[in-house]
Design a protein around this nucleic acid. Structure first.
Ligand code: SF4
Ligand code: SF4
Lengths: 167, 167
DNA sequence: ATTTATTCAGACAAAATACTCTTAATACAA
DNA sequence: TTGTATTAAGAGTATTTTGTCTGAATAAAT
């Protein structure tokens, strides 16, 4: 897989936040429940995004995480690089370190052109755009497997009677 | 990384074989030595290619592996699919199983067009083409790290005095 | 026939990745 | 001030991937 699971989770969470009508603090538990991701694991992933200044966080009741910049100012590539590192778009098809124009392999030309297309796609896709699309019908973010899991139930319980849906 | 290491090794070995002037049996030990890959590990990888009928193998002295079809008739995608499975070109950017047009995520359109470009590239790159390019100057297949390792030394020893170079 | 060079098969070990859990820090609310 | 909801930090566990090793099967060379 191109992206690590951590990275996928981070991207999903970022798009989820961008899809909300207002950029306010959302608890990680809510996000984890909605996206069907382990709460503890997502917490660590989002810590990366907080440290990379893409999210801001707030502890205590009514705390949570929120986008640190405007959704239109955060690209998919920003999120990916914050979690998986910037090498994703420099890395080789064959995963070989330190090779380039001076000493290329037979597929280098083809690969680099491919890679730059991919990078361009990721840098030009903003969270705003993705969030908008997520709000359209029949669009989803999470893995559809395992329709109900403990984290979702917990999130539902913790929502104190009001529906889990917040948007 | 997009491709697994097993897959990378398999691709490297396949291109190496295609780069030889004649398609004859080459010992896996020689390939492993040239490409700086663990002999035992490469053996298992190439067994996959043999079972997928991309290579033929011959046991005993002067045995080894050879391309089972013409290099012009084997694509990069053939090798990749034989090792990593055909899902590479069907798989999602986000690694989510079972999603498609009916229930897409916000990046689906962008990703599928990207993915089909990648698939087209891999199916149109033949081993013949890659082998040709590998024979040109300043082109390499293997990881340049670790300039001399035990496998290479062993390969040199086992070549009974004649130079390791066979092409 | 015996020795040697090779692939085949599969058990095993090590490393990387993914996930879980516990504890601490923080801040709001009653 | 006490309780509660939340993120932060990091230790610990499980799973997957990667790599190593040993022995068997096969076939050529001697
Ligand atoms: S030369 Fe280019 S395509 Fe080839 S291994 Fe290096 S980075 Fe990859
Ligand atoms: S809808 Fe497309 S891009 Fe989105 S998760 Fe599914 S396969 Fe991937």
């Amino acid at each position: 897989m191109l992206l690590s699971k951590s990275c996928v989770y981070g991207v999903q969470a970022a798009i989820y936040m961008a899809s909300l009508p207002r950029n306010e603090y959302v608890s990680i538990q809510e996000i984890a429940g909605k996206l069907n991701i382990s709460f503890h694991f997502l917490t660590k992933v989002l810590q990366n995004l907080t440290q990379a200044k893409l999210l801001m966080s707030y502890r205590g009741p009514n705390g949570g995480v929120a986008l640190a910049r405007q959704a239109s100012d955060i690209s998919l590539a920003d999120v990916i690089e914050a979690i998986d590192g910037g090498d994703i778009f420099k890395e080789c098809l064959f995963g070989l370190p330190g090779c380039g124009v001076a000493d290329p392999c037979p597929a280098h030309e083809n690969w680099t052109s491919m890679r730059s297309r991919l990078q361009h796609l990721c840098t030009s896709l903003t969270l705003e755009e993705l969030g908008k699309r997520a709000n359209q019908l029949n669009v989803r973010l999470a893995n559809a497997d395992a329709p109900m899991n403990p984290a979702m139930l917990l999130a539902a319980i913790n929502s104190k009677g009001k529906p889990v849906e917040t948007k």
